[in-house]
């Protein structure tokens, strides 16, 4: 077994863990959303990389080629990216509203303000 055969999984895994760390550890809501973006892109990598065939080409049928990479993960991830940006925008809209209501986008400060109100 050659360790490079698994490098794509390990890269995706490292990015996923980094994204997870940002989402859990950082209190800033915008930063959390960026971390969520990194998490998402790591999943794109996880899906696309197994679809690649060494020596294959992009799945656009042409008489010059005979080996194509798997088109199915591409379709799935294509929709995932666009849904991802829609949810990112929705999250950012929520952040803007939170900032207007509390004057802060830090999780800790929002919690403290909530406790004061109770």
């Amino acid at each position: 077994m050659n360790p490079l055969d698994y490098a794509n999984y390990w890269i995706a895994m490292f990015l996923l863990v980094t994204g997870l760390f940002i989402v859990i550890a950082r209190g800033n809501l915008v930063k959390k959303l960026v971390g969520l973006g990194i998490f998402q892109t790591s999943v794109y990598l996880l899906y696309i990389a197994p679809g690649k065939i060494l020596g294959g080409t992009a799945p656009i049928i042409d008489p010059r080629f005979s080996v194509y990479s798997n088109p199915l993960p591409h379709v799935l991830i294509l929709t995932a990216i666009v849904v991802g940006v829609a949810t990112l925008a929705l999250g950012l809209a929520l952040v803007v509203r939170i900032n207007e209501a509390y004057g802060s986008i830090e999780e800790d400060e929002v919690h403290a303000l909530d406790l004061e109100r109770d």
Partner: peptide
């Protein structure tokens, strides 16, 4: 239909 591209990319 013939190259990379489609509705999503064009819309964006």
């Amino acid at each position: 239909d013939y190259g990379p591209g489609g509705g999503f990319q064009a819309g964006v």
